[in-house]
Design a protein around this nucleic acid. Structure first.
Lengths: 291, 291
DNA sequence: TCAAGCTGTCCTATTGATGGCACAGCTTTC
DNA sequence: GAAAGCTGTGCCATCAATAGGACAGCTTGA
């Protein structure tokens, strides 16, 4: 039943080209979710191979990748063990802060401006921002880093009439919304859509990820009091370095009980006791950009 | 240092396992971002092959995948065209409803119970739910469907003392929180973490996706007034069928302006004027390709 | 001490993914 | 109507990914 038919049902296309990747993802999820738990010994390579119907070579590749990410430790003669890990995201955004700043607990955040240009809007942009016919937009792509590590990829579109109120240099140093409000532009209403997507080549490179990695996606459109769009943001986050947290309390009478968001204490305890060295290496290799 | 394996460079894959996948993601991003725009004709297959330095076979695979997702339409003899409105999610959850029901605009939602068992908790679960030593948990896995199409995969862990207050059959028909409150258990506080992850084999099969697809992830822990955990939920959503929407308004004085969530009208205009036929096609095709 | 079991390494088939080419059928353009 | 260009399809060659072994060196436990 589940021998060669493992790939029976699923959606599109052919055959999974990478069983190793598949096994890697499976084990990674089990480890990160705490399902396997730190310091536990994984099943032996031959066992894993048998359980998942793959060869030991494939199992080894999956384990190699896990070891590369620092999730497991392999002890020859003994077994393969799950590492204790600075688990969840390094940066968390409280719900009420989503639109403003990050929770910056004494960490240094930088912004790198990838591109900056004025262009004709796509049809989708025109309708989202309620642009006038012929009106152009400013497109900027930025990457945010914390402690030198990239965690978000931001594609921003702003109507030209608004974009000219600040400079390219401003954008590289100041949050866009702040720039806008500083110029007297009033943000009144906003709509956010949160989803998930896969990393394409450019985004993957910018966020120091492999192509096809999972990303948390947020699309935001900000409107002024007259209902015209003043900012269109497409943000892509590395889920291992950024997540959306919210605390909720149950309110209301018994008949109509519901959940309400709660203010978070501003500084959550920095649980970054040790940055895994693999990460550090990777970043230093990647780029020694801004100071 | 890094052995002789193909996976040499830790993350940024020097050798990409799947050129087709890579090209697929690249084109998908350009289409979804509006970079290519609806009704535009893509470069011809030979041209794309040349531009990206791959063979036409590979280009074809990438385009096949795009077509499967309904993003493009291929017209023999004419060219390959970007479809109008790659569409957004079919189901959207308003922020204030995240914890309750979906916005069910006259659509039929079903729940399928995948598994149900009592087991020993993992270490992570023990700490998350603040379990007593030796206390067991009830684990249930459910899939939610709308109009017969799966969109969410729910893994729930509940302390045994609480789980016994309802039956397996209850779980397949009623939301868990409702069951709990019906039993007199009080949900007081909750914490939610939203992120993204990749689909593993089981989840992919259950949600009718391919392995490695992007998923919106939500982890929720609900506590009773005494601070003990009563529910641990790991929810995985198909981002093309479910997304998190929120409307915000700018409040507060000039000094401390911030964003606050806004109540949504309960029934958002069903922008599903017509379920795009591409979707329908996909489903039927999907069944056909079972081999 | 010995036996069992584990990882590290090497080897050889087989299968899948890709590259490269040719041709048919269709649409558009001139 | 003809030419050009596109997608759909088939074929074969090449190379990477996987399967399936074998063996060495190590650790653990009896």
């Amino acid at each position: 039943m589940s021998k060669h038919t493992i790939w029976d049902g699923p959606l599109v296309s052919s055959v999974e080209p990478l069983k190793a990747r598949r096994l890697f993802l499976l084990l990674r999820d089990r480890i990160l979710s705490g399902d396997i738990g730190p310091n536990t010994r994984l099943p032996s390579e031959p066992l894993l191979a048998q359980e998942h119907g793959v060869s030991r070579v494939t199992v080894r590749r999956a384990l190699d990748k896990l070891a590369d990410e620092g999730l497991i430790e392999r002890r020859p003669g003994s077994g393969t063990f799950v590492n204790t890990r600075p688990t969840s995201a390094q940066v968390t955004a409280d719900f009420s802060n989503v639109l403003t700043h990050l929770v910056e607990m004494g960490r240094r955040t930088d912004v790198k401006l990838i591109s900056f240009a004025y262009m004709a809007p796509t049809p989708a942009l025109t309708s989202d921002l309620k642009l006038q016919p012929g009106e152009r937009v400013q497109r900027s792509v930025r990457v945010r880093l914390i402690d030198g590590q990239p965690f978000s990829y931001l594609i921003t579109h702003v109507p030209e009439r608004i974009g000219i109120s600040y400079s390219e240099a401003d954008l590289a140093s100041t949050p866009l919304l702040e720039l806008l409000e500083r110029s007297g532009i009033v943000a009144e209403r906003a709509q956010q859509i949160i989803g998930a997507t896969l990393a394409g080549p450019e985004v993957a490179a910018a966020l120091d990820l492999e192509i096809g990695a999972a990303l948390l996606s947020m699309t935001r459109i900000v409107y002024d009091p007259s209902g015209r769009g003043i900012e269109h943001l497409q943000a892509l986050y590395r889920p291992d370095r950024y997540s959306l947290n919210m605390d909720l309390i149950r309110t209301g009478a018994n008949g109509a009980r519901r959940w309400s968001p709660v203010e978070r204490p501003r500084v959550s305890t920095p649980k970054t006791k040790s940055i895994p060295k693999t990460r550090v290496n990777r970043v230093s290799i990647q780029r020694r950009t801004t100071r």
